[in-house]
Design a binder for these strands. Structure first.
Length: 516
RNA sequence: GGGUCGCUAGCUCAACUGGUAGAGCACCGGGCUUUUAACCCGUUGGUUCAGGGUUCAAGUCCCUGGCGACCCA
């Protein structure tokens, strides 16, 4: 019947042509075939996109309630389920289909004995990807597959584009990120990672609530750059005629709230850093920062460790995970070692910020570590750590007592004024958390800000501004406080064993797609 | 920023030293009452990322550009 085929195609072209203008042309043939089906339904006075449908059960719910139903059983249980049609196996007088909803899949069983011919025919002309609502009886097939023997179904949303290959799925990384909606439909791993992220954030909230922290929100649009070392995004507010930064950290406003008397606060929020992207960096990412009055960095270490264990346990019961080439173990306590100790351990040299600059420079020259002329011994020491050590630290390790010189918001160490009371938690060579005993001396803080501002004036694009309002806040008195920041995306990468940050961010930053 | 690799049908992939662009799935038509990536038969479907060059002839070789992945700094 070649004529019929040709006619059907010709008929399908006409109604679809005008509506195609604003979409790309992928799958043009299949799109037009399906658009023709939409037109045909409309011509019969039926709506291919009806407004609602009452469901009584979900796929997962039916699986849970009918676990162990013997093969070849038929129940009296009438259910209405909604989902996306994932597979369709037409077999003449019998059709099987796989319906997927948020929490699972279930087979549909369509028998000529239970539905009339036109319903069956219509079912057989559905496409993979269509959303349907079905009503029927819970049963199992001879092979034991839990199914719904349907007696009626309703098309809820016609899919115009075909789903990717039912076996190979969607593997092109770029397309997976650009069209995450498709990735989530066909790749279970994408859904698994997304759900772990969602659950992890929920668990962190519960954990912090359990410790009496208040969740707060600071401003995203800011007029000073501060709280971290990073290049900001700049934007413009029209009504105020004001250039503004998108925040690079949450820190300075959370501590203002500590001043205000909200003595345990945290925020889980998006921060923005105008830097290159790679496997572990996305320009916008999610930070947790928590501040606890009357805590110091030792308390924050305990908090950090407990929080990570609380978040990890439901996902990784043994707290172990394969991450790239590494086997990570989050069993507490994590190792604690000072930066100075680690340098000595690894390189066999003693380095601390009290050494004369010339001596330290000579040492860096010997190690082939690059540095700037205006760096003091502390920053030079930090460069050795950054260049030669951090990437080698695989298992969770609290690296303690960084040079004060590169910690402008941290309090000087109680035992050594050239060091800060600071730690970074390093995992698989990357910083997962960063914490201080917070600096609350307003005079000292101003000195630190001014040093940064002069570096910025000297061309350091990552250096911060003097935040005079923050200094003013400190002048009203901030109690001794410990604070910590944890990279949520990184944490989720570890918990899911996914060594790419773009896999754990549903919509990673991408160049715009040509033509979109 | 440097290097390597990739981009072919809606999806997943082929196409030797340059010689008529193919397969599976999907789609369309037909068959099939217990399938599970169902199966069987028959069709349809292409600006080979873009542009330029070499050649009788370019998916293939050369140049430029785009997008992406990985490694390095």
């Amino acid at each position: 019947m070649p004529n019929e085929t040709t006619n059907a195609k010709d008929a399908s072209r006409e109604p679809t042509a005008p509506s195609d203008q604003d979409v790309d042309n992928e799958g043009e043939n299949q799109r037009s075939t399906r658009l023709a089906k939409v037109q045909a339904l409309r011509a019969e006075g039926r709506n291919p996109y009806p407004v609602r449908y009452e469901r009584t059960h979900t796929a997962g719910g039916i699986r849970a309630s009918h676990e162990g139903l013997a093969p070849g059983s038929e129940t009296e249980d009438r259910v209405r389920v909604v989902g996306r049609l994932m597979l369709l196996r037409r077999q003449g007088k019998l059709s099987f289909a796989t319906l997927a909803d948020r929490d699972g899949q279930i087979q549909l069983f369509v028998s000529a004995g239970k539905v009339d011919k036109s319903t069956h025919d219509e079912f057989d002309h559905l496409d993979r990807g269509d959303w349907i609502g079905v009503e029927g009886i819970v049963m199992t097939t001879r092979r034991g597959e839990l199914s719904i023997a349907i007696d009626q179904f309703t098309l809820l949303a016609k899919a115009i584009r075909p789903l990717p290959d039912k076996w190979h799925g969607l593997t092109d990384i770029d397309t997976r990120f650009r069209q995450r909606y498709v990735d989530l439909v066909v790749n279970d791993e994408a859904k698994r990672v997304a759900l772990i992220r969602i659950q992890t954030i929920a668990r962190i909230r519960r954990f912090l609530e359990g410790r009496d922290f208040l969740e707060v929100e600071g401003p995203v649009l800011q007029t000073t750059q501060g709280g971290a070392t990073a290049r900001p995004f700049v934007t413009h507010h029209n009504a105020l005629n004001l250039d503004m930064y998108l925040r690079i950290a949450l820190e300075l406003h959370l501590k203002r709230l500590i001043v205000g008397g909200l003595d345990r606060v945290y925020e889980i929020g998006r921060v923005f850093r105008n830097e290159g992207t790679d496997t572990t960096h996305n320009p916008e990412f999610t930070m947790l920062e928590a501040y606890q009055a009357l805590g110091d960095y030792n308390d924050m270490m305990e908090l950090t460790e407990s929080l990570i264990v609380a978040a990890a346990t439901p996902v990784l019961p043994d707290l172990k995970v394969k991450y790239g080439d590494h086997d990570l173990d989050f069993t507490p306590p994590f190792r604690r070692a000072t930066m100075s100790t680690l340098i000595e351990e690894e390189l066999g040299v003693h380095l601390d910020p009290s050494l004369p600059v010339d001596e330290v420079r000579a040492l860096l020259d010997g190690l082939q570590v690059e540095y700037e002329d205006d760096w003091g011994s502390g920053r030079l020491m930090n460069a050795v750590y950054d260049d030669l050590l951090q990437y080698k630290i695989i298992q969770p390790t609290f690296v303690l007592d960084h040079p004060r010189e590169c910690s402008p918001l941290a309090r000087a160490h109680r035992d050594d004024p050239l060091l800060a009371e600071r730690f970074e938690l390093v995992v698989a060579g990357h910083e997962l958390a960063n914490a201080y005993s917070e600096l609350n001396d307003p005079v000292d803080q101003l000195v630190q800000f001014e040093a940064e501002a002069s570096a910025k004036a000297g061309g350091d694009l990552e250096a911060g501004d003097v935040d005079l309002d923050y200094v003013r806040a400190l002048e009203y008195g901030m109690p001794p406080t410990g604070g910590v920041g944890i990279g949520i995306d990184r944490l989720v990468m570890y918990l899911t064993g996914t060594p790419s940050i773009r896999e754990v961010i549903l919509f990673p930053t991408l160049r715009p797609e040509p033509g979109m």
